[in-house]
């Protein structure tokens, strides 16, 4: 990485990136306003210890029944904080990964079981068409998703059509399980990948 390949890429503003809150169906706005919540001491919310837990009627037990399926936004949230190997910027803000380029397809849609086999396709858009780091970025996305998704997902990471000069070659590399496994044996590469994925861990806490 001695020379920066694309020194001046276009950057998207963090607040413009797709997020769950923005798509929201207004769920959160129904709870009483934040300002006046401060007038009620927090101790007022401590449940009566004498009531057995099963009967507690607050919203958490009601919530427990609803299922929140893994959706495109969740996939996006998993991979957009990965940092670019060249810039201290995230793949999301560089528009390398984009919400519309994430596709979830149930493998057997007609069966309709609760946790169906699903194919996940992520198309990545390199910042410039001759970016030699596209493979590394693809690998990073792939590793992240394989660590973070349950086994019923088949992960397919590809370069978006028409965005890279050697897309086919890169796709072949990313799709080849053995080559991916071999790449992960490489210490230097692993170091680069770990650095890229570092950003994902800190975000949560």
């Amino acid at each position: 990485m001695s020379e920066v390949l694309n020194a001046n890429p276009t950057i998207r503003n963090a607040s413009d990136l797709p997020s769950r809150r923005r798509q929201g169906n207004g769920q959160s706005s129904k709870t009483p306003s934040g300002l006046f919540a401060t007038t009620v001491p927090s101790s007022a919310y401590i449940p009566d210890p004498f009531l057995p837990p099963s009967s507690d009627s607050d919203e958490s037990s009601g919530d427990d029944d609803s299922v929140e399926p893994i959706d495109e936004q969740e996939i996006y949230d998993l991979i957009s904080p990965i940092s670019d190997p060249e810039h201290p910027l995230t793949l999301g803000s560089l528009s390398v990964v984009n919400l519309p380029d994430i596709h979830l397809t149930p493998t057997f849609p007609e069966k309709g079981s609760a946790s169906p086999l699903t194919t996940l396709t992520v198309l990545i858009t390199p910042t410039i068409t001759h970016c030699s780091l596209a493979t590394v970025i693809g690998l990073g996305v792939r590793v992240r998703l394989e660590q973070a998704l349950p086994p019923r997902f088949r992960v397919d990471v590809r370069i978006k059509e028409g965005t890279h000069s050697t897309a086919e070659q890169v796709n072949r590399q990313l799709g080849d399980k053995e080559r991916v496994a071999a790449a992960l044996e490489n210490g230097t590469l692993l170091g680069v990948l770990r650095k890229m994925l570092e950003g994902c861990e800190n975000l949560e806490t």
Binding site: P49, F50, P52
Partner: peptide
């Protein structure tokens, strides 16, 4: 369960 009450903050 009452022991949870003894030290709980109370408004």
């Amino acid at each position: 369960r009452g022991f949870g009450l003894l030290l709980a903050p109370d408004e």
